[in-house]
Amino acid sequence: MSKRFPRTVLVVCPRRIGDVLLVTPLVRSLKAQWPEAHIDMLVLRGTEGALEHNPDLRRVTVEAPHAPLRARLVTAARIWRRYDLACATVGSDRALIYAWVAGRKRIGLVDAERAKWFARAMLHRIAPDRHLDAHVVSSTLELAKLVGVTPRAKVVPPGIGPDPERRARFEARFNAPATVPPGQRLVVLHPFAMFAYKGWTIPGWAATIRWLRGQDFAVALSGGPARAEREYAGQVIAMAGEQVRNLVGELTLGETAEMIRRAKLFIGPDTSVTHIAAACGTPTIALFGATDPVRWGPWPCDWPLVDTPWARHGSNRRGNVYLLQGDNACVPCRREGCDEHKESVSDCLIDLPASSVIAVAAQMLGLPAPIPTQIVTINR
Rank of each mutant, 00 (worst) to 15 (best):
M1R: 04
K3Y: 08
A220E: 02
G204P: 03
R16V: 11
G18C: 11
R317V: 10
G241S: 06
E142D: 13
M194V: 12
V273P: 03
A354R: 07
Q363A: 14
V60W: 02
G183L: 09
N246L: 02
W100M: 14
L146V: 02
P128S: 07
R125E: 13
G103R: 06
V180A: 14
K198D: 01
T8V: 01
L73P: 00
R78Y: 03
L265S: 04
E340D: 14
G103Y: 03
W100V: 05
E113L: 13
P309D: 00
V357Q: 04
V9M: 11
I79K: 02
H124V: 03
T308I: 04
R78M: 10
W299G: 05
W299V: 03
G148R: 06
Q235D: 11
M194I: 09
D216A: 13
F288W: 13
A99Y: 02
G337M: 01
V147M: 00
D56N: 15
V20E: 06
G214V: 04
A50T: 03
L146A: 01
L212N: 03
P35G: 07
T377Y: 12
Q235R: 15
A207H: 05
G148M: 07
H275L: 03
G254Q: 08
N316T: 13
E52T: 09
I358E: 10
T271S: 15
I285A: 03
T308C: 05
A112M: 12
G49Q: 06
H190K: 10
E336T: 09
R59H: 15
G103D: 00
P298V: 08
F174A: 15
D351E: 12
C87F: 09
Y83C: 02
C13G: 05
